[in-house]
């Protein structure tokens, strides 16, 4: 069930940027990827070089001509996710989160209920933070009553890192110690990200030598490795159950 949930406890952290970069990078690694915009803001498409008036096909809509950018299928999951029976459909497997296709879901920071439902079915939760005091202050809300270092499927990305700023340097240091291996990547602040959206281009096309893109590549490789590891673990966990069912 290759669902990757991108959700941050606070808006403005670059969650959509990270989701888009992950989808594009995993596609370049040869995965079949669908990027799911589950936000009302509908901003994920901007990181694919699409204009604001371009609408995405609905998750549950039968679409003949898929909207794809750079090999990534784009869908809007906002409407489907806010149907009363969404959680039940997810539990029953009526939503297409099985199979080989990797779904990268961009979930709004305020939509904590949806994020929790999806995280239970996700292979990985990617939580984007920025090295600001307001971002760090939200850390206790991510997994309340569960230590951040516990072996859960939550990983962290430190985005918009500017090491010329004192607090940012100290925050990065603090987070590295606090989160350990859970902090899987840091992405440097890069104006090229903003400019690429302004040019209606992907970052890879607009600024292929940008620092943020190089950092994103490292994140993609880390996530791909973690997903592969989780898949192997799931197989190991499922084997005894399958044998037991067969014996019964």
């Amino acid at each position: 069930m290759p669902l990757i949930v991108c959700h941050s406890p606070k808006g403005g952290e670059g969650n959509s940027f990270v989701a888009a970069g992950l989808a594009q990078g995993l596609s370049l690694l040869g995965r079949d990827v669908v990027a799911l915009d589950m936000t009302a803001a509908d901003g994920l498409k901007s990181y694919f070089g699409l204009a604001p008036d371009q609408s995405l096909p609905d998750l549950e809509e039968e679409v003949i001509d898929q909207l794809t950018v750079g090999g990534v299928g784009l869908r809007s999951g906002w409407r489907a996710a806010h149907q009363p029976d969404f959680a039940e459909a997810l539990r029953a497997g009526d939503l297409p989160f099985d199979g080989e296709t990797v779904f990268v879901a961009d979930v709004a920071s305020t939509d904590t209920g949806l994020a929790q439902v999806l995280r239970r079915r996700a292979r990985l939760h990617v939580c984007t933070l920025t090295p600001t005091a307001m971002s760090l202050a939200q850390l206790p809300r991510i997994n309340p009553a569960r230590a951040l270092g516990e072996p859960e499927r939550t990983t962290f990305v430190l985005n918009q890192l500017d090491e010329t700023r004192r607090f940012a340097r100290h925050a990065a240091l603090f987070l590295r110690e606090l989160l350990g291996d859970k902090l899987i990547a840091q992405i440097h602040r890069d104006e090229a990200v903003n400019e690429a959206v302004g040019m209606l281009q992907t970052l890879a096309r607009y600024a292929p030598a940008s620092a943020a893109l190089a950092d994103m590549e490292r994140l993609v490789i880390a996530v791909d490795g973690l997903c592969a590891g989780e898949a192997a673990d799931e197989t190991v966990r499922a084997a005894p159950r399958a044998a037991k069912n067969e014996a019964a």
């Binding site: 005091a133 760090l136 202050a137 850390l139 206790p140 809300r141 997994n143 309340p144 009553a145 569960r146 230590a147 951040l148 516990e150 004192r166 607090f167 340097r169 100290h170 240091l173 603090f174 110690e177 606090l178």
Partner: peptide, 28 residues
């Protein structure tokens, strides 16, 4: 930066002590 040179931001201390981060449910 090394740790000793790091500013003693009270926010960092508050986070370290926060039971929701340490997972100390009894305290939380």
């Amino acid at each position: 930066d090394n740790f000793a040179d790091m500013e003693l931001w009270p926010l960092f201390e508050a986070l370290i002590r926060d039971p929701r981060i340490s997972g100390d449910t009894a305290v939380a």
